[in-house]
């Protein structure tokens, strides 16, 4: 899938201070029956967002009017569990372009990057600041600058890691398959 280009994003954000948010919570298995990539956003965090009878759970962050934005901020070990890319699709489809956490599970990180969702790993101290700031003011913003690999909250700035290959892909909207397809000769030579 061609991915969106990413440069700088300034946005309000949605805090989800739970730890070990696993992909079964992000999108429960019973919503994985589709054969296309559309519409998963509707069921993002389904069982936290809605009661069994379908009424919205007002305590859940996505249902609180004070929070909005294109950035989701989660607790430590975000995206653990199943390899379902549907989790990244659901986050993307809902409208998030960035997920911030102090620690990401590996497969989720790959899946997010492959869908143009930028996972930003910050220190646990910075993460606490982010949560505290939005608690005081839901209109608080974060600025994510991919070129400079920086995340800014008011005056605080942190640099985040991303490998230069993936950075380049996101900056330019390239995807891995295009890259690999250009390597066909090399792959065939390897097989021989």
């Amino acid at each position: 899938m061609p991915i969106d280009k990413f440069r700088i994003l300034e946005s309000t954000y949605v805090p989800l201070p739970a730890e070990n948010v696993d992909t079964d919570q992000i999108i429960p298995a019973r919503f994985l029956k589709a054969t296309d990539r559309e519409g998963f956003g509707e069921n993002l965090f389904r069982d936290w967002r809605y009661a069994a009878d379908g009424t919205p759970n007002n305590d859940f962050v996505l249902n609180k009017s004070e929070y909005s934005g294109k950035i989701l901020v989660g607790g430590k070990n975000f995206g653990s569990g199943s390899s379902r890319e549907h989790a990244a699709w659901a986050i993307h489809d809902y409208g998030f372009k960035v997920v911030v956490s102090s620690f990401f599970a590996d497969i989720f990180k790959n899946n997010a990057l492959n869908n143009g969702v930028l996972p930003v790993t910050v220190s646990s101290e910075f993460l606490i600041k982010i949560f505290q700031a939005v608690e005081k003011d839901g209109k608080q913003k974060l600025v994510i600058d991919l070129q400079n690999q920086s995340i800014r909250l008011n005056g605080h700035v942190e640099i985040f890691e991303i490998n230069s290959y993936k950075k380049n892909c996101l900056l330019n909207g390239f995807d891995d398959i295009d890259y690999l397809l250009n390597k066909k000769d090399k792959i065939e030579a390897f097989e021989a």
């Binding site: 492959n114 398959i177 397809l181 097989e191």
Partner: peptide, 14 residues
Amino acid sequence: IGTSEVEMVLATQC
């Protein structure tokens, strides 16, 4: 792997 990677393997075996 995720589905994008499944696509990669189908397309290039890598």
